[in-house]
């Protein structure tokens, strides 16, 4: 490939330009989060982001070739899928598994539906769900942030040979950070009833996936997209608002058992999911009322899975479930009730 990004004029003059511009700006908004992830986790995070994104681009190219269609790399959507997917994976995730995730994201999540705009589910989350089901151990193996040697050496699991199981790194992780337990804040809460203080989420010290650790950068990226009108602000507001409301209600009911809404908002992937994944244009509703219903559903289901499910984190499945209901929501919310939107928010 001589030119990885191919600029074409027709056949997508009008819509192509606009889609491409939105997508380019989303990438721009994601870059600071990626940079922070690399600063936190070092070479391994960089290698993971590059590998996953490259696999996504290559898979997109491959399916374009298979279908005999013109290349669609230039609309940046595959790059966004790759970046987002990499940000939802644990930094110690072996690169070959990252490549599997990238392939599954584009192949299962997008190409099989007919490409951008036809997909029902957010491709990045389809990729993540696939590796969650395929490699349940590696997807929940965490490493500490700000390990001292992170720019000098890779995490031992990064270069696991393809198809092979990664080595056990619990000893390595303890060596990198004394007292590191390998549990995420959500797992600590669920199994030890221990609530992580909010400053850990703001500084990026909390144990999490590569791009889930800093609420500030995610919010800034989201605000930028909202300000440029590339993103529907109602979706993140509905997701975060409903999750906070649900968490608040549970805390009122039993304060000893349920954490405060701030913890629910900041922990795990809720911020990243609300700002960058629930807002995917192809997989979110188009009607104003539908957008609120969709966002509220994601927020509430997330809290339900976290509190009552077998998994510690529920954002991924909540958004995928929301995606699946989009056609139904759109059908039952014709946009004539324009003035009545706020009153129907749960």
């Amino acid at each position: 490939m001589k030119a990885p990004i191919e600029l074409r004029s027709s056949p997508h003059v009008k819509r192509g330009v606009s889609v491409e511009r939105i997508m380019r700006n989303v990438v721009l908004a994601l870059l600071p989060i990626c940079a922070f992830a690399v600063w936190q986790y070092g070479l391994s995070a960089l290698a993971l982001i590059v590998t996953v994104t490259a696999t996504c681009l290559a898979t997109e190219r491959f399916f374009n070739w298979m279908a005999g269609r013109p290349g669609t790399l230039s609309d940046w959507s595959a790059a966004i899928t790759g970046l987002l997917l990499a940000l939802t994976l644990p930094p110690a995730f072996p690169l070959w598994m990252g490549a599997v995730a990238g392939f599954a994201a584009i192949a299962l999540g997008k190409a099989l539906f007919g490409g951008l705009g036809q997909n029902v589910f957010n491709p990045a989350l389809v990729g993540r769900a696939f590796v969650q089901a395929a490699f349940p151990v590696s997807i929940s193996t965490w490493v500490p942030a700000f390990a001292p040697g992170r720019f000098a050496e890779f995490i031992p699991t990064t270069f696991t040979l393809p198809l092979m199981a990664p080595p056990d790194i619990s000893a390595w992780a303890k060596g990198a950070l004394d007292g590191f337990t390998g549990a995420t804040p959500l797992a600590l809460w669920k199994f030890e009833n221990q609530v992580t203080p909010p400053d850990a989420f703001l500084s990026g010290a909390a144990t999490a996936s590569a791009g889930e650790t800093t609420a500030v950068l995610i919010l800034l990226g989201g605000l930028y997209l909202v300000a440029r009108r590339f993103m529907d602000w109602r979706i993140p507001v509905a997701v975060l608002g409903s999750a906070a409301l649900a968490a608040w209600a549970f805390q009122l009911w039993d304060p000893a058992r349920y954490p405060d809404p701030g913890f629910v908002l900041l922990s795990g992937g809720l911020m990243l999911g609300a700002a960058f994944m629930a807002t995917d244009m192809a997989t979110s509703p188009v009607t104003p009322l539908g957008v609120w219903i969709y966002g509220a559903l994601i927020g509430v289901v997330t809290v339900m899975i976290r509190y009552f499910g077998g998994l510690t984190e529920g954002v991924m499945y909540a958004i995928l479930l929301g995606n699946a209901l989009v056609p139904l929501i759109d059908q039952y919310t014709p946009p004539r009730v324009f003035g009545d939107v706020k009153g129907t928010k749960p």
């Binding site: 598994m97 696939f130 089901a133 395929a134 490699f135 349940p136 590696s138 198809l163 092979m164 199981a165």
Partner: peptide, 22 residues
Amino acid sequence: FGPDFQPWVVMVLPPGGFFVLG
């Protein structure tokens, strides 16, 4: 692949059947 092989759990579960058939 020897003893270090990492099984893809999803493949022996029902969704794996659908993926492979697809």
